[in-house]
Computed example of a mutant assay.
Amino acid sequence: MKRIYDWDAKFSLRNYTAADLREFKGIRKLVQTTANSEEEASAAADAGLDLIMGNAINAVAVRRGAPNLFYTVAIPMPDHPTEKDVLDQAFLAMKNGADSVYTARGPHIVELLAREQIPVMCHLGLVPRRSTWNGGLRAIGKTADEALELWRAFRRMEDAGAFSVEAEVICDRVMADISKRTTLITSSLGSGSGGDIIYLFQNDVCGEQPDRPRHARAFGDLYALQQQIRSARRSALKAFKKAAQTGAYPDQYETADISDLEYEKFAEHLDRE
Rank of each mutant, 00 (worst) to 15 (best):
M53Y: 07
A43N: 03
I27L: 07
A104G: 11
A18R: 10
Q32I: 10
N36E: 05
N58R: 15
E23T: 10
G97S: 04
I52R: 15
V120Q: 11
E83W: 08
L126S: 00
I118T: 07
N96Y: 13
R64Y: 00
A19C: 13
E23R: 13
A9S: 13
E39W: 02
T17G: 08
D8A: 07
T103K: 14
Y102V: 05
L126R: 00
P78D: 01
R14P: 00
L49D: 05
Q117Y: 13
S100A: 08
T82A: 12
T17Q: 01
N15S: 06
K95G: 07
E83G: 06
G106T: 04
A35C: 04
G97P: 01
P107F: 12
V110T: 13
N36A: 08
N55A: 15
L21I: 01
S12Y: 02
K25T: 04
R22K: 10
T103Y: 02
I109A: 05
Y102L: 07
Q89R: 13
I118P: 14
G65V: 09
V73P: 09
G54F: 09
T132Y: 12
K10R: 15
L113D: 07
L87E: 15
S131W: 07
E38I: 13
G106Q: 06
T72R: 05
E38L: 14
H108E: 14
Y16F: 11
R105H: 14
A61N: 12
V110K: 07
V120T: 12
V101D: 01
A18Y: 12
A90F: 06
D88I: 11
V110C: 06
R130W: 05
P67L: 02
L92V: 09
A18C: 02
R129N: 05
V120F: 00
L13P: 06
R115C: 15
L21W: 01
S42P: 00
A66N: 04
F24G: 13
G54V: 12
V120Y: 00
D46Y: 12
V110Y: 02
R63T: 13
D88V: 09
K10A: 05
K25S: 05
P128Y: 01
N96K: 09
A66L: 12
L49G: 02
A66E: 04
S12K: 15
E39P: 04
